[in-house]
C-alpha cells in the first residue's frame, strides 16, 4: 500500500508537471506574438494618456500650472493619444 502511494506521489509531483511543461512543444507552430501589435499594452497606454490629461486639467484647476503650459502639454498629450487610437483602430480593421 505504501509502495503504491509513493508511486502516486511521484506521478503527481513529477510526471504531471513535466507533462504540463512539455505539452506546448507538441503543438503546431504558433505565430510569434512578439511581432504582433500588443493590443492590451496599447489600450493601457490609451487609458494612461487619458488619465494624464485629467490630471493635467486638475493641476490647472488648482493653479499648479499656468495657462500657456497647460495648453502646450494638453496638445502634446492629445496628439499622443490620437496616435494610439489610430494604431488601435488600424489593428481592429
Amino acid at each position: 500500500m505504501h509502495f503504491i502511494s509513493d508511486y502516486i506521489l511521484v506521478f503527481i509531483f513529477f510526471v504531471l508537471p513535466v507533462i504540463f511543461v512539455i505539452q506546448p512543444l507538441f503543438l503546431n507552430k504558433i505565430n510569434n506574438l512578439k511581432n504582433k501589435i500588443d493590443l492590451p499594452s496599447l489600450k493601457r497606454k490609451k487609458r494612461l494618456l487619458y488619465r494624464q490629461i485629467k490630471e493635467l486639467e486638475m493641476e490647472f484647476d488648482i493653479g499648479n500650472i499656468n495657462q500657456k503650459d497647460f495648453k502646450i502639454s494638453r496638445k502634446e498629450l492629445k496628439i499622443e493619444v490620437s496616435e494610439v487610437i489610430t494604431k488601435l483602430n488600424s489593428n481592429k480593421i
Partner: peptide, 11 residues
Amino acid sequence: GDMRLFLTGQR
C-alpha cells in the same frame, strides 16, 4: 522566435 518554446519556458 518559436512561440512553443516561449510557452514551455513560461511553464
